[in-house]
C-alpha cells in the first residue's frame, strides 16, 4: 500500500508540467524514503531525475517498494482537474494497476477522485558518476529562463563558457550572433536574486538550446537554479523544490567531430 498526501498539491502539477514534454512514459520508484524517477528523453540526449522526500509530504506511507509505470501526459490531464490550492493525495495498492488521485479543496467542501491506469514500462537506470565540476553557477530561475529563451531566437545551439569574467552564453545563427554574460552579484535584496559563480577551471561547452529551454519549464518550482558545467561532460541543471526535493536535468554536450 502506498499513500501520500501533499498539502501544496500544485507542486505535483508543476513538477509533471516540467518534465512531461521530455519524458512521456516513466517509472516512479516509491519507497519509504519517498518518490524517485529517472528517465531519458525520447532521443536519449538528456536525462531527467526527480526526488520527492517522504518527509516533504503531510502524510507518507509505503509498506513495500513499488514501481508505478505512468504516462505523464495522461497524469498531466488528470492534474488539470485539480485546483491550484487543492490538497492532493495519491494512493496505490501493492499489486494494483491504478494510481488513485484525490483532490480536496482548501475548505474540504469539494473532493475529486480519479483513477489513472498504470502501465508496464521497461526502463534502464543510468549511474550518474560523482563529478568534480569545473564551474557551478546559481542564478534566479527567471534569469536562466530568459537567457535560453532570448538566445533561441538567434540560433539552435549555445556555447556556455565560464571564465574569470563570469559565465557567458553565446548563440550564433543566420541573423547574427548574441552573447549574454552574467557576472557574480551580491547586491540583490534577497539572497536568491544574486548570481553566484564558483569556478575551479575555465570551461567551454556547446549545447542544443531546445533542451535547455525545455528545462526552464521547471521555473515555477523554484526561485533559483544551479547550473553545473564540467569539461567534456553533460551540463546539470538543478531546481530545488523547497522542503520537498528536487528535479535535475542532464544534457549531453555537442562535441566537435
Amino acid at each position: 500500500m502506498f499513500e501520500a498526501r501533499l498539502i501544496q498539491g500544485s507542486l505535483l502539477k508543476k513538477l509533471v508540467d516540467a518534465i512531461k514534454e521530455l519524458c512521456t512514459e516513466v517509472n516512479w520508484d516509491i519507497s519509504n524514503s519517498g518518490i524517485n524517477m529517472q528517465s531519458m528523453d525520447g532521443s536519449h540526449v538528456c536525462l531527467v531525475a526527480f526526488n520527492l522526500r517522504a518527509d516533504g509530504f503531510d502524510h507518507f506511507r509505503c509498506d513495500r517498494p513499488l514501481t508505478l509505470g505512468i504516462n505523464l501526459g495522461n497524469l498531466a490531464k488528470i492534474l488539470k482537474c485539480s485546483g491550484s490550492n487543492d490538497i492532493i493525495t495519491m494512493k496505490a495498492d501493492d499489486n494494483g494497476d491504478t494510481l488513485t488521485l484525490m483532490f480536496e479543496s482548501e475548505k474540504q467542501d469539494r473532493i475529486t477522485d480519479v483513477d489513472l491506469k498504470l502501465m508496464s514500462i521497461e526502463s534502464e537506470h543510468l549511474g550518474i558518476p560523482d563529478q568534480d565540476y569545473s564551474a557551478e553557477t546559481s542564478m534566479p530561475s527567471s534569469e536562466y529562463q530568459r537567457i535560453v529563451r532570448d538566445l533561441s531566437s538567434i540560433g539552435d545551439t549555445v556555447n556556455i563558457s565560464a571564465t574569470k569574467e563570469g559565465i557567458k552564453f553565446s548563440a550564433m545563427g543566420d541573423i547574427g550572433t548574441a552573447n549574454i554574460t552574467l557576472r557574480q552579484t551580491s547586491s540583490a535584496d534577497k539572497e536568491e536574486e544574486n548570481v553566484k559563480i564558483e569556478m575551479k577551471e575555465p570551461v567551454l561547452l556547446t549545447f542544443a538550446l531546445r533542451y535547455l529551454n525545455n528545462f526552464a519549464k521547471a521555473t515555477p518550482l523554484s526561485s533559483t537554479v544551479q547550473v553545473f558545467l564540467t569539461k567534456d561532460l553533460p551540463v546539470q541543471v538543478n531546481y530545488n523544490i523547497q522542503d520537498l526535493g528536487y528535479v535535475k536535468y542532464y544534457l549531453a554536450p555537442k562535441i566537435e567531430e
Binding site: 540526449v45 534502464e124 543510468l126 561532460l233 553533460p234 544534457l251 555537442k254 562535441i255 567531430e257
Partner: peptide, 14 residues
C-alpha cells in the same frame, strides 16, 4: 561540425 552526443556516452547503465 559538432555532433550531438547521447547521454549514455557519459552515464552507464547501473
Amino acid at each position: 561540425m559538432s555532433a550531438q552526443k547521447k547521454i549514455s556516452t557519459f552515464f552507464s547503465p547501473k
